[in-house]
Design a protein around this nucleic acid. Structure first.
Lengths: 146, 146
DNA sequence: ATAATTAAGGACAAAAATACCTTTAATTGT
DNA sequence: ACAATTAAAGGTATTTTTGTCCTTAATTAT
């Protein structure tokens, strides 16, 4: 569905929203460890998410780290996809066509369109806050023993 | 959603099912031209689809080319994903976790699960024939002038 | 038989995604 | 001021994906 970068970005954002606030910041290593991602690569992802502090905020130095503001928690998760430049879901159809629509539909258009609509709705309406329920520690591990 | 390889594979399969039969075979160049894909790369994709002639059939030599049998048209399009080793949709969740389920759900599980179910149903129940039906649209061009 | 045609197969090239490492800058506490 | 800590930034390495090219094998028509 998404690139690893986007998966890490979504996991990191939700985890930070669950665990942090401006008084309790999370270090890169805490985050990478929690969301099961390579630390150095995760650093790059976090840099994208903190661009202009628009999704994630960060401060350097001792007791520094990453956190998210209450305002940013209200953003729809689509913003995370935008930050990662992951727009194919919104632009392309399931066969990879760019302008697949009612006027020039592909052979799978009528089958995929309703599903695409739900996916778009999910990312445009669900906020970071709605996905980050702090009442219980969430599962972010790629491989679980079931 | 899918890799370019898988997109080409789906487009090629549907196109071949629309246009060919054992008496009317399609050359590599006809196919690549129709589905808007790089010819040499498409050749590799077609090799995967013709493995054991299980989805697409081919014959070499003059008047040779690719075609699909009536039997193969009855296969669900999931078979194309299998041939391309594109299994993430069926295995992983939207955050990239392998064993995301009711017992250990990720933070997006309950939002994504119903959509994933529809996607799986689409690929497991729709046959190549159903998508290649003359009643279905037949546009395969990546960039349309709308 | 021979030549022409077409897919199959192998090697290789380019580009993109993923991952790592080192240095720099900011911040904090002493 | 200084040392310690932490993210930012830059460069590089590795792997995967995408794409090309050339040779081989099969088939057909002459």
């Amino acid at each position: 569905m998404f690139s690893k970068s986007t998966e890490y970005a979504l996991r990191a954002t939700i985890y930070i929203a669950q665990e942090s606030n401006s008084d309790k910041k999370l270090s890169l290593n805490q985050i990478a460890n929690a969301i099961d991602s390579p630390p150095s690569f995760t650093a790059k992802i976090l840099q994208l998410l903190t661009k202009d502090n628009c999704i994630i905020s960060s401060v350097r130095g001792p007791n520094g780290g990453f956190y998210i503001t209450e305002d940013a928690k209200q953003l729809p998760i689509r913003k995370v996809l935008e930050a990662m430049d992951e727009q194919d879901l919104f632009i392309k159809c399931i066969l990879g066509l760019n302008n697949c629509s009612e006027t020039k539909p592909c052979p799978m258009h009528y089958q995929y369109q309703p599903i695409k609509k739900q996916l778009i709705k999910l990312f445009e309406t669900k906020t970071i806050l709605q996905l980050a329920d702090p009442s219980q520690p969430a599962n972010f591990l790629v491989n679980n023993s079931l």
